[in-house]
């Protein structure tokens, strides 16, 4: 990075540190901060969508759909997320490839499962084996997002399901009295009002999501924890210009600070959002705001 870094063995402590922290390998850990933030930014709406679908399914008047929704919520919530992380990515990958295989290679006669291998026709491979590395990485990242969305979607479904039931029944009845259909009442009355009831649960869920990101390396994404372990481990001079002892504790300290800042900032932002959403709502919080405004 810097010009004076050509012979790190000769540098004084400060310059050595500057060079050490800017090796190309170190850039990877800085990039992985971005990976974590992007994952959060993409997963949150995806999980919310899954959650909305799950909550609607659980509320459905068609019994099998309702069972499906409830089973999804119960099963995913009853199992430690790490158990899913351990096999979901491979399962999803095989699932997508299987579907593509069925679509693209109808004439394929060889079995897909043979000798313990999972072999689809070359055209169905995901990504294609000729694809450049960055496509593979994006695909891996996408699988991680889907896995997170499925798991946290169940938690979100639980929160939204509760929030939908928390909207006072009288509101729905009023809507019906105005001649709205069930669907209209859902869209115009229930959904806009449920957010204020859902927000505390969703904020909490966001915090859990943030704190689950160190498990990203289980999903094959080289994340912060992966690089902290790799960079922090003791290095001998034979394989690097920057030999050092076991520095993992410093790297993990940096991670700790990163997560503390991230959760603290989220907390403040979510508190503000709550104030915004409470405005004009028929809750004690909304009432308090109204009184404060009059006074």
């Amino acid at each position: 990075m810097f010009e004076f870094c050509t012979d790190p063995g000769q540098l004084d402590r400060l310059a050595w540190m500057a060079c050490y922290l800017t090796t190309t390998k170190h850039m990877a850990i800085y990039w992985s901060v971005g990976t974590v933030l992007i994952l959060l930014a993409v997963t949150a709406p995806a999980a919310l969508l899954m959650g909305f679908g799950g909550a609607m399914a659980a509320r459905s008047r068609i019994a099998p759909v309702s069972w499906l929704g409830r089973a999804y919520i119960m099963i995913v919530r009853g199992v430690p997320d790490i158990a899913f992380f351990m096999f979901f990515v491979i399962a999803l990958d095989q699932f997508f490839e299987y579907i593509r295989h069925e679509v693209k290679c109808p004439g394929w006669t060889e079995p897909i499962r043979q000798n313990g291998n999972f072999l689809v026709c070359p055209e169905a491979k995901l990504p294609l084996s000729s694809a450049p590395q960055y496509i593979h990485e994006i695909y891996g990242f996408t699988l991680a997002v889907i896995t997170f969305a499925i798991i946290f979607g169940a938690f979100a479904a639980n929160v939204l399901y509760g929030a939908m039931r928390a909207v006072p029944q009288a509101q729905i009845e009023t809507a019906e009295a105005y001649g709205m259909s069930r669907r209209q009442a859902f869209r115009r009355i229930l959904v806009p009002q449920m957010w204020v009831y859902a927000l505390p649960g969703l904020s909490n869920l966001w915090m859990i999501l943030v704190k689950a990101t160190p498990l990203l390396f289980l999903l094959g994404v080289q994340d912060l924890v992966y690089w902290a372990r790799e960079l922090g481990g003791a290095k001998t001079p034979r394989f690097t210009d920057y030999p050092h002892g076991d520095w993992r504790i410093w790297y993990f300290l940096a991670l700790l600070v990163f997560y503390l800042v991230l959760t603290r900032v989220s907390e403040i932002a979510l508190d503000r959002l709550m104030v915004r959403l409470t405005r004009g709502q028929a809750t004690s919080g909304g009432e308090a705001q109204r009184k404060a405004m009059i006074a």
Partner: peptide, 16 residues
């Protein structure tokens, strides 16, 4: 500190 950081990292620190 304990609510704001991942348990995964707390275990690492605990061990260290």
């Amino acid at each position: 500190v304990f609510r704001g950081s991942p348990l995964f990292i707390q275990f690492f620190f605990g061990y260290f």
